[in-house]
């Protein structure tokens, strides 16, 4: 099935910790989508988490240790590092250099950060992926994760990929730019506020009439689908964009 082009540089894949814990299939679909464009995917086995949970919670040293581990693991080759999450990509691109700003390793970290690219940006801008939709007509809605929007700047790419799927009617959320309330440890440190935010987000999702809510970030999905399950909302499912596209183009 793989058609690897010799002319194309292989790419590294950073799966994210949520892919390891809960969303392995989505991440696997992302790998398949990259391979489909003729790139060899290389997966370093020692990778773990981008470090964002500690970084956002007042534990910068722990975040830094975990970040440095990733920098080292991906140092063997100079390949681009594709990340199926706007939030993790944002952490690695935007925040790693800040974490190491007073460290002699800053330049190593900066070089690492420059290689990080979010999945849909890679597929759209670098691989110029073209998709043919083989699925039945469906209504879908899209949730932009805050960091995908404001740090990784990849929403236009995600939507450009979705727009190629001819049988998918994309209905935008009324408050697409508003946070779903996940925010990592925010969701457990301020559960009431986070709960109010996610219940508004779910109401917005439901009111679109879509049968699937898509996102490029598993954290938001876990939050949104978790709330839908709790509220017994069964006519909308949540799915990562990579898995969705993979299913659509394979019929």
């Amino acid at each position: 099935m793989k058609k690897v082009s010799a002319a194309k540089t292989p790419v590294y894949f950073f799966g994210t910790c949520l892919a390891d814990m809960m969303y392995a299939d989505s991440a696997m679909a992302a790998i398949r989508l990259i391979e489909r464009e003729g790139y060899e995917v290389v997966y370093p086995m020692e990778q773990s988490c981008c470090g964002q949970p500690a970084y956002n919670s007042g534990f910068p040293d722990e975040a830094k240790a975990v970040a440095w581990k990733q920098v080292q693991i991906f140092a063997k080759h100079d390949y681009p590092i594709v990340v199926p999450s706007g939030s993790c990509a944002g952490m690695m691109k935007v925040h790693y250099p800040k974490l190491f700003k007073d460290s002699p390793d800053l330049f190593t970290v900066k070089r690492f950060s420059e290689r990080v690219v979010e999945l849909t940006t890679f597929l759209h801008q670098h691989a110029h992926a073209v998709y043919e939709d083989k699925g039945a007509p469906i209504k879908a809605t899209w949730h932009s994760s805050c960091h995908a929007m404001r740090e990784a700047n990849c929403i236009a790419d995600s939507k450009a990929l979705l727009s190629q799927l001819s049988n998918v009617e994309l209905i935008e959320l009324e408050r697409e730019r508003e946070c779903c309330g996940f925010g990592g440890t925010f969701s457990i440190k301020q559960p009431e506020i986070s709960g109010a935010m996610v219940s508004d987000k779910v109401a917005d999702v439901v009111s679109t009439g879509a049968s699937v809510v898509l996102s490029g970030d598993c954290g938001c999905l876990m939050n949104i689908t978790g709330h839908m399950e709790k509220e017994n909302i069964t006519d909308v499912k949540g799915q990562h964009i990579a898995e969705f596209i993979w299913e659509r183009i394979n019929g």
Binding site: A24, M28, Y43, K230
Partner: peptide
């Protein structure tokens, strides 16, 4: 977490398991 969300379901396989199983190049 569960005050407004269901209990998270952890996958049987991690991505690391899948990568090995599906023959993705790993190092």
């Amino acid at each position: 977490w569960m005050s407004v969300r269901s209990k998270p379901t952890f996958g049987k396989n991690s991505l690391k398991d899948l990568v090995k199983k599906e023959g993705v190049r790993h190092e």
